[in-house]
Write a protein that binds this DNA or RNA. Structure first.
Length: 387
DNA sequence: TCTGGGGTCCTAGGACCC
DNA sequence: TCTGGGGTCCTAGGACCC
């Protein structure tokens, strides 16, 4: 079963700001003049063609009378946790796979629900509404992909059940772009071969498809076009990466200013690593030039770490030549980002650690404790704060 | 029209090792 | 003098998802 909240970001904002409740044309993602994209639009605004992922400016032109709000991550997280608590009560395995969606695995519950899961789904929808005030749609199917597509099909505020044996027929009516994993680029490439609908793949000889898109792509496309998908639901283990990035209100050309932001981003990333008891095996620097050309530079670390200053040195070594290259192209910097990758569980400290490093770790842990009580901004490096 | 932020997975080439 | 096969790790970019 796949549960998907309807216009999640919009509705959470309405809950938190009652003055938005009477407003039919609502766009969440940022203020009208911001350099961002639409996170979510009310059904009213969608009638004007506003879609998530669309630049805010474009949305403002399509729907000039809309109200634009930014929204608060913590509010989304709270609502999401409430939904998780509800679904967790209804199936042996249940997990959220995003702020606004989750799966429930009912494998092995045939005796409990011999005919259909429709009634449970109804109950879950009601409970979510009672607890959070939010509407949701639910898809039921023999595998994750089908359940996911079914919840999409059900939207808004409905339930769609696809019983075993119906998979192939159910997906036969869909456009290829409706299959998870087929994004805009792939859809265009397939369209270049005259392929637009799932039904076409179902009828095409595999050898011919393979000739068009290659063996790997053909195999996965055929599998999905038959309505087959994963049936296992497993909580994911350790994170693979932790990152922070920011797009500037105006492009930046000053190395000093960028260095300050770099330190601030590293502080955030390192703080989260320590929070989750992780250590980074490598650092990735990301720069986006004014003309949207985006480069990443990566450096492996000799020793995994979650300490700010051990990430700063390699990050700066990556930054210097990358920034020089941007200068050579006469480009300002639009976005700066830092990621910690190659993550592993942080190990217990080395017995023979250099005393200076021990002190740094102790200071860092004191800073973490202050931040836990008074917020992240309660303590900062002079370099970040200073002018 | 002027393009967010947080992630995951895949591909592909090169260095290096046996 | 010209050349294998398998493996791992590193790096860069791209597609995709919410």
């Amino acid at each position: 079963m796949h549960v998907d909240l309807d216009a999640f970001f919009v509705e959470v904002c309405r809950q938190r700001q009652p003055e938005l409740r009477g407003i039919d044309l609502l766009v969440v993602g940022g203020k009208r003049e911001s350099r961002g994209v639409v996170q979510s639009a009310s059904y009213g605004a969608r009638k004007f063609g506003v879609r998530s992922g669309m630049p805010i400016g474009q949305a403002a032109r399509l729907c000039p009378n809309a109200t634009f709000v930014k929204g608060e991550f913590v509010h989304y997280r709270e609502a999401s946790h409430a939904v998780r608590a509800v679904i967790g009560r209804h199936a042996p395995i249940a997990l959220m796979t995003g702020l606004d969606e989750g799966y429930l695995d009912f494998s092995g519950t045939d005796l409990l629900y011999p005919v259909s899961l429709l009634e449970v789904a109804e109950q879950i929808r009601n409970e979510i509404h009672t607890v959070t005030g939010l509407d949701s749609s639910i898809g039921i199917g023999p595998n994750r992909m089908i359940a996911k597509i079914a919840s999409d099909y059900a939207k808004p505020r409905a339930i769609c059940e696809v019983r075993p044996g119906w998979e192939r027929g159910f997906v036969a009516g869909l456009a290829l772009a409706a299959l998870p994993g087929v994004g805009p680029k792939t859809a265009r490439r397939l369209a270049d071969h005259g392929l637009n609908d799932v039904a076409q793949i179902q009828q095409l000889p595999p050898a011919e498809l393979e000739r068009m898109v290659g063996a790997d792509e053909a195999r996965s496309l055929i599998r999905r076009s038959q309505g087959r998908g994963g049936t296992v639901l497993r909580a994911h283990d350790l994170a693979k990466s932790v990152s922070r990035e920011t797009t500037f209100f105006k492009d930046i050309t000053s190395a000093e200013e960028l260095d300050r932001v770099l330190l601030m981003l590293i502080a955030r990333v390192a703080g989260q690593l320590r929070d989750e008891a992780l250590a980074a095996g490598a650092v990735v620097l990301k720069l986006r030039h004014s003309d949207f050309v985006t480069v990443t530079r990566r450096r492996a670390l000799a020793t995994p770490t979650a300490l700010d200053h051990e990430l700063v040195a390699p990050a700066r070594e990556l930054f210097a030549p990358a920034f020089a290259a941007a200068r050579a192209r006469r480009q300002g910097i639009r976005l700066l980002g830092i990621a910690a990758v190659g993550l592993r569980a942080s190990e217990t400290p080395d017995l023979f650690e250099a005393p200076a490093r021990t002190r740094t770790r102790e200071v860092t842990s004191a800073v973490d404790q202050v931040r836990a009580r008074f917020g992240f901004d309660a303590v900062q490096r002079g370099r970040v704060k200073g002018k």
